[in-house]
Design a binder for these strands. Structure first.
Lengths: 152, 152
DNA sequence: TCTGATTTGTAGCCGTGGCTACAATTAAGC
DNA sequence: GCTTAATTGTAGCCACGGCTACAAATCAGA
C-alpha cells in the first residue's frame, strides 16, 4: 500500500479494485484445498473406528488409494494440527477437535450428495463428484442446500 | 447394480472390493485438483486477451493473487502441457487446445454458478464457491445441471 | 538518447503429498 | 518359543505451487 496523498485517486474506487475480488476468490479455493486432505482423513478415521473398532494406517491407505507411507506422513500432519493422536505401532485416534471436524465433514458430505441427487445427478456420479466438491462448499451455501432440501 | 448370483450377497458386489470404489473416488478428486490450476490459467488468459487484447504475466499474477514469479512458473507448465505459447518478454497466448479448454471451463463455471443460484445460494457466495467447486463437476453432473436449469 | 521505472525472467528456498526402498516392530503359525 | 509374515515407521526421492531476491529486458519521459 503506497501511502501517498496524491491528487488523483486513480482507479481506486471506494472499495476494492475489481481484480482483488477475483484474487480473493482464488485464494479461498487454494486454502480450501489445503484443508481438504485433513478433512478426508478425519472423516475416514472416524468411520473406521466406528465400523471396525480401530483405524490402522494400512486400512486408511487402502481406502484412500495411497501408499501406507503417504498415509503415515499425512497422519503425522493431522497430529501436528492437533486433530489426531497415535502411539508407535498402535492405531490412530481422533482428538475432540478431530471428532468434531469429522462430524461436520460427514454432515456436509451427505448434504452435498443429497443436493446433487435432488437436482437430478445420478447417485454414483453424485458420490464421486461430492468427494471433490464438498471441500469448497461454504457454510452459507450449505445452509442454502439444506433449505432447498426442506431441512431448513 | 443387479448382480446376485452368489450365496452370500452381502456387501460384495462380485465386482470390486468395497474400498476400491472409495479409493477410486479419492483418486478422481486428486487428479481433478491437478488440472484445476491449468484450467484457471487457461480461462483467465482467454479472458484477458478478450478484454485487454493481451495477457501479460503481471496481470495474470494480480488477478490470481499470486506473485509474478509463481505465475510465470505456472505459465511454463501450461506451455509444457501444450496449452499456451509465449516468447521472451512478450505476452502469453493460448494454443487451440488451450482455447478449447478455456471455453469448456468458462461454460462450466457459468453453469455451476447458475445452478447454485437456482437452488438458493446468494450470488456472491455462488461465485466464490464455484471457483473451487467447478473443477470437480463431471460431465455427467454438468448435464444434470443443464437439464435442471431447463437447458437440456 | 539515455536513464530510471516497470515488466519479465531466473534462481533458489520451503512445505505438501505422492512414491519406493529399507528398517523396525508386532502378530501369526508351526 | 522361534521364525516368518504383515504391519508400521523412516529416509530420501520427485513434482508442484507458493515465496523472495536478484538479473535482464523493455518502455516512457525528460
Amino acid at each position: 500500500m503506497p501511502k501517498s496523498k496524491s491528487y488523483k485517486l486513480d482507479a481506486e474506487p471506494a472499495d476494492l479494485p475489481p481484480e482483488a475480488d477475483q484474487a480473493h476468490r482464488f485464494e479461498k479455493a487454494r486454502t480450501a484445498q489445503a484443508t481438504a486432505l485433513l478433512e478426508d482423513y478425519a472423516e475416514l478415521i472416524s468411520d473406521l473406528i466406528g465400523t471396525e473398532g480401530e483405524a490402522r494406517p494400512t486400512d486408511i491407505a487402502r481406502r484412500l488409494g495411497v501408499s501406507h507411507a503417504t498415509a503415515i506422513k499425512s497422519i503425522a500432519r493431522l497430529k501436528r494440527e492437533g486433530l489426531a493422536t497415535s502411539k508407535l505401532y498402535r492405531g490412530v485416534f481422533l482428538t475432540p477437535a478431530g471428532e468434531m471436524l469429522a462430524r461436520r465433514v460427514r454432515a456436509r458430505h451427505r448434504l452435498v450428495v443429497d443436493l446433487l441427487v435432488a437436482v437430478g445427478v445420478p447417485q454414483e456420479a453424485a458420490e464421486v463428484d461430492a468427494e471433490g466438491i464438498e471441500h469448497h462448499v461454504s457454510e452459507e451455501t450449505l445452509r442454502a442446500f439444506a433449505k432447498f432440501l426442506g431441512r431448513a
